[in-house]
Nucleic acid binder design. Structure first.
Length: 720
DNA sequence: CTAGGGTTAG
């Protein structure tokens, strides 16, 4: 192949004939007055300067380098003859700017110089500049070589320029550059894999004659990043079989695939890693921590972590995240504390994990503390952190704070909007959710399936039937998204609660393979509307799909109980006992002075039980005078009227609230209680009255959502 | 003289 440029000699152009570049003077003029001795006295020839440049580069001293440069310039030495060496030196000293200015001055440039500049841009994350230079190179008829191509594809993949990358691939073929070169090949494989074109990546990989570890690792990473984890493992196996030795990069990548697969392959790889001696590389250990936690063996993650003296921020974060994902939120927060104690500063990954722990545990104060850390670390603009904050405040019932965080963020991607809509949904602010959803569409942001799920559940939580139906039909018309059973479940819930049970049932029949959740949702609608006959019919559907569905049994028995069919209720009880199904007991808890107090219905074991009873009695008098009447329809045992009233009286949420009022009599902060099941109708009504007489805001999080009670009203508008 | 692949999150 013909090269346009002759081998460029290392000289050229006398200094005098050049227009004096402004850069030299401005950037180094401050050195002029400093009479610091150069290491070698008054260099005059090429070899002296080469030695000097080498010294500057070794010391990585940009300052000395500029002085040497200036010296050449002032002494009339044709410094551009050393242009390439100077550029290399500048790049090694970390100044792309000096290098780039010098590059522009050079009348002719060696291919090595071009490559060095392009490479430097890519390595400093300036891929746009790199591509610009690559294009300029083409325009100036300089032929790119295998070095150019080994670096430039990364620039295209960084910038997400599929078309440009493919064009560069075309140019490579036209120029006759060897595609079978492993360096060029891995650049291409990496690019195609990152674009999700795994088939192209595979094809390129197959054409490389002498495959090496880097090339195959690039392919493995491509596979894992696009969910082809089995395939990744196959590539790995093939690699071992062919005798190509895996290294730390390979191990840390393949373990990701093992974690997703969740089988025993991870342990096998772990063994191999020990054998190859890579198990003490921190990145590999980090991947091990993640792999074991994804496989559900969080204790193994802990073991790996304990024996990892060089744990860095990523390792800690992997462990903290693993703990949260394995339901050990408290330990994750303790670990976080330990990590901060080691003066490791958390990053966005760490913070979104610990915020998630706070939101699961509804730990409002801790969540706020972490919000402070978010500000201190300057990560409040990060999208994932923002989403986690919105979610945390939402799950702690502080919808106002959630919105505040949301409004403070300017880049509103779909993830953030989903978090906000979801927070509205859980607190029952259906209008807020729908408004945000409509606003999002108007501003041209495409909702995804999670958006639809959140907004539909918001509608069903708030009883916005028409809005919900409108949104669901827009989902059905959406060509890019298919409604899932979860979406259907929301609409079934919405119609069911609104009493449109036949419509709900017909909707389920439209689903190809309706799952048990759909039928159970309809069953719960039957309970609300007391449809005993329909409930029997729906129950047979539930049992076809899931014999031992505890929730459905409880629901049906509640339906019989409210209809007064006590013989059916006792039949159900026997049936459930036979099947070893247990109704989980209702529980409420409240945090007072850093301590969590848990209450069960009628439980007299709390040290303040007497005071609580007195408080309950005082509240009863006050609210009955305002018109509260116990609603015995919510008593599901076969008792007489008086006994029924008594049993309502000791529901756990009432006890928790009475205790909360007692415990902070003198300040009027809001009372937050949590319940493991859903709030019963009588308690809901009771809390409304209590919020009025005590002039306190009461927030109750039940199994599914939040209720904000103020001045005798609830945010759910009695829809739940 | 210039070159390629990795670990943590919703």
């Amino acid at each position: 192949m013909l090269r346009c440029l002759p081998k460029v000699p290392d000289f050229i152009i006398p200094f005098q004939s050049l227009a004096l570049p402004t850069f030299h003077i401005s950037s180094v003029s401050h050195c002029l007055h400093k009479h610091i001795e150069l290491n070698s006295p008054c260099p005059t020839d090429l070899s002296d300067y080469i030695v000097l440049l080498q010294q500057c580069t070794n010391r990585k001293s940009l300052w000395d380098l500029r002085r040497t440069h200036l010296h050449m310039h002032k002494s009339g030495f044709p410094h551009l003859s050393l242009g390439n060496k100077l550029i290399q030196s500048y790049l090694k000293c970390g100044s792309i700017e000096d290098a780039s200015n010098l590059f522009d001055e050079m009348p002719q440039r060696h291919i090595v110089t071009w490559n060095s500049m392009i490479s430097a841009y890519v390595c400093h994350g300036l891929s746009g500049e790199a591509i610009g230079l690559f294009e300029r190179m083409c325009l100036e008829n300089v032929f790119a070589d295998e070095f150019t191509f080994s670096i430039v594809f990364k620039a295209f993949s960084d910038m997400g320029l599929v078309h440009g990358g493919r064009k560069a691939h075309g140019l490579l073929v036209v120029l006759g550059v060897e595609v079978s070169d492993a360096f060029v090949g891995s650049g291409l494989v990496d690019m195609y894999a990152k674009f999700g074109r795994l088939r192209d990546a595979r094809l390129v990989c197959d054409r490389v004659v002498e495959k090496d570890v880097v090339l195959l690792t690039a392919l493995i990473v491509g596979c894992t990043q696009h969910g082809e984890n089995g395939e990744a493992l196959e590539v790995f196996r093939g690699m071992i079989v062919e005798g190509i030795k895996a290294n730390d990069f390979t191990f840390s990548s393949i373990l990701i695939a093992c974690g997703v697969l969740g089988d025993r392959s991870g342990m096998q790889i772990h063994g191999l890693m020990v054998k190859f001696g890579y198990d003490y590389v921190v990145a590999c250990r980090t991947s091990l921590v993640t792999m074991y936690s994804k496989c559900g063996s969080i204790d193994d993650s802990l073991k790996v972590f304990e024996r990892c003296p060089g744990a860095n921020l990523v390792t800690w974060t992997a462990l903290i995240t693993g703990l949260v994902q394995n339901g050990r939120e408290e330990s994750s927060l303790l670990m976080f504390k330990q990590m901060v104690g080691k003066s490791l500063s958390p990053n966005a990954f760490t913070l979104s994990s610990v915020l998630r722990a706070c939101s699961v545990l509804a730990m409002y104060e801790q969540g706020q503390q972490i919000h402070c850390i978010v500000f201190k670390t300057g990560l409040h603009g990060e999208r994932y952190v923002g989403a986690a904050l919105i979610d945390m405040y939402g799950k702690c019932g502080s919808i106002g704070m959630a919105r505040l965080v949301f409004d403070s963020l300017d880049k509103r991607g779909v993830v953030l909007i989903n978090s906000m809509i979801n927070s509205y949904a859980q607190s029952g602010y259906g209008e807020g959710a729908v408004e945000l959803f409509d606003h999002m569409r108007k501003s041209g942001i495409e909702p995804n399936d999670a958006t639809f799920l959140s907004v539909l559940s918001a509608c069903s939580n708030a009883g916005l039937v028409e809005e919900g139906c409108r949104i669901f039909s827009s989902l059905q018309r959406n060509s890019k998204l298919d409604p899932s059973t979860d979406h259907y479940a929301c609409v079934v819930d919405l119609l069911g609660r609104a009493g449109r049970l036949e419509e709900a049932e017909n909707l389920i029949k439209q689903v190809e393979e309706p799952d048990v959740v759909l039928w159970r949702t309809l069953l719960s609608a039957c309970r609300i509307h007391g449809k005993v006959e329909m409930a029997r019919r729906v129950m047979t559907r539930v049992l076809e799909l899931d014999q031992g569905n505890e929730g459905a049994h409880v629901l049906l028995s509640n339906i019989f109980a409210s209809a007064g069919e006590w013989s059916e209720v006792s039949n159900m009880k026997i049936a459930m006992k036979d099947m070893k199904l247990k109704k989980s007991p209702g529980m409420s808890w409240i945090k007072v002075d850093r301590e969590v107090h848990t209450f069960m219905a009628g439980d007299p074991s709390h040290p303040s039980a007497t005071e609580i009873n007195e408080e309950l009695e005082r509240l009863r008098e006050k609210i009955e005078s305002l018109g509260y009447v116990p609603d015995v329809r919510f008593v599901l045992q076969d008792l007489n009227e008086e006994e029924k009233k008594r049993s309502l009286y000791y529901h756990s949420e009432k006890i928790a609230i009475a205790f909360g009022l007692l415990s902070n009599k003198h300040n009027n902060t809001c009372i937050r209680i949590f319940k493991n099941l859903r709030v019963c109708g009588d308690c809901h009504n009771w809390i409304k009255y209590v919020s009025k007489v005590s002039e306190r805001e009461i927030i109750a999080r039940d199994a599914k959502r939040f209720h904000h009670f103020t001045d005798g009203m609830c945010s759910c508008g009695d829809h739940w």
